[in-house]
Simulated assay, not measured.
Amino acid sequence: MYDVMGIGEVLIDFSVVSSAGVPQMFGSAGGAPANVLAAVAKLGGRCRMVSAVGADAFGDFLRDALSTLGIEVDSVISVEARTTLAFVHIAGDGERSFSFERNPGADTRLRPEDLSPAWFADAKVVHVGSLALSHEPARSAVHRALELAGDHGRVVTFDMNYRPALWSRPVEAVGQAFDVIARAHVVKSSEEELLLLTGNRQPDEALLQLAKAFPGTRFLGTLGRDGSLVAIDGLCHHVPSIPVEAVDTTAAGDAFFGALLYQLTRDADLPDVKHRLDDSLFWRSALRFANIAGAIAATRRGAIDSLPSLSDILEHMPA
């Protein structure tokens, strides 16, 4: 059985940086759901990717990159559209902004009928990214995936991962996100995304606000260098991170979520995974592990290339 099956975009990340005043660009495999699966796989988990790429050299590259990590790619289909490209502009402090070549973009071409029910019978966790919600038919494919996950009793996780360039209006992104959150077991949002979802500038209050509105969902908040939050039983718990010198935060959130899903699924059958969702001790330990993974990724350039190994993380875990 696969630990995590991811549904959403796999694309080429072109990072734009400046060295000695000269702009430089380098490309790598990326896309938030693919990065999350890569993080799980690098730590030892088994993963399947469900996505669409172009029948082009970039699509072949992406399949090879995921397959090299041990991720199952027979569910990555080829379509008559160009493989989606993302351009990541890295600032001096490691923070980034995004633009996309996605018109329409192969990742948006995934259709509900492309999904095999057998894939959902063979995965503990179904992980969904928000970029697939921005365009049809991928949006309908996500909702079909949620139906199939529910039919098979699988755990659903969701990454808000808001990218303004891909939405005509923020309110549209929020509405689509809430449709998925209503069917998810675990949801991760950044500080900015918590503000978008709730209008509340206090991350802890925003997290509790969401937890009250969706009592069946576990909400996580990422705070960058300040660690992360989890809402449990009406309380918001803060778990600190480790200090690092960030050079590129592109995959930090994906490293965090992938490490968390590795902890959620490792050495566990489906009932054990569901039990861990309500275990406060599990969450505090898992978030400490995930925070370290995100921090390490921020010290390296690129997306999948930046993700840490298990030994990398354990080196920084407290005794």
Rank of each mutant, 00 (worst) to 15 (best):
S15L: 13
T157S: 08
K212A: 15
D74I: 06
S15Y: 04
L235D: 15
R169E: 15
S28H: 09
H143G: 06
A231K: 02
F87C: 00
A246K: 07
S280H: 14
L43H: 02
H238L: 14
A177P: 05
D204G: 05
E95K: 15
I71N: 06
G153N: 03
D305H: 07
F120G: 12
D267I: 07
A295E: 00
P271H: 12
L220V: 02
A252Y: 00
D269F: 05
V174N: 09
I292H: 00
L261A: 09
T217Y: 04
R276M: 07
S306C: 02
S51E: 01
F158Q: 07
M5T: 13
S18C: 13
V126L: 06
G30K: 08
A29P: 03
R225V: 13
E95P: 11
R109E: 15
M1R: 12
D107S: 14
D248W: 09
A91Q: 08
A251F: 00
L69C: 00
A286H: 00
M317G: 08
L235K: 15
A106E: 13
N35M: 13
Q209D: 14
I181L: 10
G224Q: 02
N161H: 06
V230L: 05
V230Y: 08
F214Q: 12
F98L: 00
A286F: 00
R144L: 08
